[in-house]
Amino acid sequence: MIGSYPTVARFIQAEAPDAPVHLLRPHRLARAARDFIDGFPGDTLFAVKCNAHPLVLRTLWDEGIRHFDVASPVEIGRVAETLPGAAMFYHHPAKTPGQIALAWDRGVRHFAVDCPAELEKVADRTGPAMVPVVRLAIPKGSGAVYDLSTKFGATPEVFIATLGRAAAMGFRPAVTFHVGSQCLDPAAFRLGLGMAVELTGRAGVAVELIDVGGGFPAYYRATRAPPLAEYFRVIRQAHAELTAPLGIRLACEPGRALVAEGGSLLVRVVLRKPDAVHLNDGIFGGLTETYWGKDELLLPLRVISADGSPRTGAPRDLTAYGPTCDGNDVLPWPVSLPDDTVTGDYIEFNLIGAYGREMAASYNGMRSDAVAVIETDFAGHLCAEAMESGRRTPRLEVL
């Protein structure tokens, strides 16, 4: 951790960083956590894969998040070391025997499974207190940017068989599903709840917990999704009609929606050309997810000169290349930069709090784990505020 600064401009003036820096805004993380705690009708689990930095975990804990969705021994260790009192849910549906045993020893009691074979494997290496969380596959067409049911999740027939086998073994199973990452249609959550209730009924197995997964959106420049409050409204209504009468509790496991606005990425212009810029980070680093999300994950950005002042020239679309020797290291969309952008300037890409640090590789030895805290909001595109009426005016950075 480099330190805490009131603004990005002050950080640039003090540090003049030559390597990419991940900027964390804990006040934005805290606000997102409060939104879920206040709005979602059940427990909120944080999907640690999005951002496992200790400051992120501690900030969410301080705001009341007590449950964490982990997917590897590394994530289990990070949560256990940072937050010894946290409850962990191992929601990766394909685990090695060693991973299962390690998780059990570290206090994990909820394990995702999506077939009888995984259920048997987990049962052999845990104990009677283990809770198998049977994952149901959701049909395509939910409006998500990333469909997550092609790799994991049971078909209805396999779901019923797995649920029945878990009950026959003496366990008290739970259910989960995932509508897909960056889901643009709140109705997908009602669909998932309806399928889960119908299929548990067909299996003749009573469950006490349904985890609706993640998929709640962050608001990128091209995102066309209702405000988060509408997702909560749809889920509350579905809960009241479908699951609450059966005594079923709900949980969710957001990642992107909790932390995307809590982080940005500060990169430097290594070389300005007439029609392009070369940056010190790219699709093999902190901007990896843009390769997969393309236009759907169009990032807000701004340009700051080396003395901390904003560039204000007329916008011009430029190709943005990353720093590696790979010709594919180029952003999937042109960046609109002020025409007075020069070599040595900085570009701050917002909404990198989710997946930016975690997906970065070390190709060509160019990975940067540098982190600094910024105390004010990103001074630019703030879709969440634009889409939610009644919000207080954010405390924007003053350059």
Rank of each mutant, 00 (worst) to 15 (best):
L193D: 09
A174D: 02
H178G: 06
A166K: 01
A167W: 03
A187V: 04
L184H: 12
D185P: 10
V197I: 05
D185F: 15
R190H: 15
A168Q: 14
R202L: 15
A174K: 13
A167E: 08
A187S: 08
T200D: 04
G180K: 04
P173K: 13
R165C: 12
L184R: 13
T176R: 11
A188M: 08
P186W: 08
M169W: 13
A187R: 11
V197N: 00
A196R: 00
A196Q: 01
G180R: 02
Q182M: 13
M195S: 01
A187W: 04
F171Q: 06
F177V: 11
L191D: 09
L163E: 06
T200K: 03
H178F: 05
R172Q: 09
H178P: 06
L193R: 06
A166T: 08
L199W: 07
L193G: 06
A206L: 10
D185G: 11
A168K: 14
C183Y: 06
A167I: 11
A196S: 02
L184D: 13
L191T: 11
V179L: 10
T162F: 04
R165M: 14
T200N: 04
P186H: 05
V205W: 00
T176M: 15
R165L: 14
A206F: 05
G164V: 14
G194P: 05
T200F: 06
A167M: 14
C183S: 14
L184G: 15
G192C: 01
R190C: 14
P186D: 03
F171P: 07
E198D: 09
R165T: 15
L184E: 11
L163M: 11
L193K: 07
A166H: 00
A206W: 06
V205S: 09
G170F: 12
L193N: 09
A196N: 00
G204I: 13
F189R: 08
L163A: 09
C183M: 09
A168R: 13
V197K: 01
L191E: 07
C183W: 05
R165H: 14
M169A: 12
A188V: 10
G170D: 03
G164D: 07
A168E: 15
A168I: 08
V175S: 01
G170A: 04
A203D: 03
F189V: 03
E198T: 07
A174N: 04
V179H: 08
F189M: 10
H178I: 04
A174W: 05
E208M: 09
Q182A: 08
A187D: 11
T200Q: 07
G170M: 03
G204A: 13
T162R: 03
V175Y: 02
